[in-house]
């Protein structure tokens, strides 16, 4: 498999505060990489760094092309879709308008058929079509956020804690759909999760982040089965 996303010696921070101290990380084309770690370890910052939402040094390469220190909108236009923490939906706009914005940069004619495909994944969004996104339930908003991101037809999907604040049943639902998406669309996924079990189950590669440095990396399955790592880092 070829690498879709590669981070090499990536540093990032906000103002004077440095958060990442040299991260190396890979997402394979069509593969799922999980990024684990405690609160404040720098997981969200890593995703933001990929999207050009924070200042970085080091290399970020998307399918062979350097994208570090490009504008966020240009990175999105190269096929990186980010579902940030707080979901990044347009609360004041309707579900329909959120869909249209998701496909904003696309020029092809298959947008409407992709809408149908999203309804296939998330039937509830069809019922909420003319409703303001802000009036949706938490689970529906997360679905809308993922649909919005997929409508970009991304090569790389960044997910920041998709299970956050949702009921277990809905989380199961969403991860089920993410598996379908992965198979159907061949999109590479970099996922940040608090729920390590869930993420390791879903991913094929995993990294463990501690105060801005990677302390463990390897195939997700090995990490899941390594009792010592589980006990000392993942706490279950």
């Amino acid at each position: 498999m070829t690498a879709l996303l590669e981070l090499r010696d990536l540093h990032a921070g906000y103002g004077q505060t440095r958060v990442l101290h040299g991260i190396d990380l890979t997402v394979d084309a069509g593969g799922v990489t999980a990024l684990l770690g405690a609160n404040g370890a720098g997981k969200t910052t890593t995703l933001r760094a990929v999207c050009g939402m924070v200042r970085t040094t080091g290399e970020v390469t998307l399918a062979g092309e350097r994208i570090d220190n490009r504008a966020t909108e240009d990175i999105a236009r190269r096929g990186v879709a980010h579902v940030p923490d707080g979901r990044g939906t347009f609360m004041e706009l309707t579900v329909e308008e959120n869909f249209k914005l998701g496909a904003y940069v696309r020029k092809d004619r298959e947008v409407t058929s992709d809408f149908e495909q999203m309804f296939g994944y998330f039937p509830r969004l069809r019922q909420r079509w003319k409703q303001q996104a802000g009036t949706l339930s938490g689970g529906e908003q997360q679905m809308l956020a993922i649909a919005r991101a997929l409508l970009l037809r991304p090569r790389l999907l960044l997910l920041d804690e998709p299970s956050f604040g949702l009921a277990p049943l809905i989380v199961q639902d969403i991860f089920g759909i993410l598996r379908q998406v992965r198979e159907a669309q061949g999109v590479g996924i970099l996922i940040v999760e608090q729920n390590a079990n869930l993420a390791l189950d879903f991913a094929d590669r995993a990294y463990l982040l501690e105060t801005g440095r990677i302390v463990v990396s390897g195939p997700a399955q090995e990490i899941r089965e390594d009792e010592q790592i589980r006990r000392s880092y993942l706490g279950y």
């Binding site: 999105a76 940030p84 347009f90 904003y104 940069v105």
Partner: peptide, 21 residues
């Protein structure tokens, strides 16, 4: 489409960048 993008940018600039606006 442009009008929608302008409204989106007004409501939520960072999300707008994420969809390429």
């Amino acid at each position: 489409k442009l009008g929608l993008a302008m409204r989106a940018a007004a409501f939520n600039a960072s999300s707008s960048r994420l969809v390429g606006i």
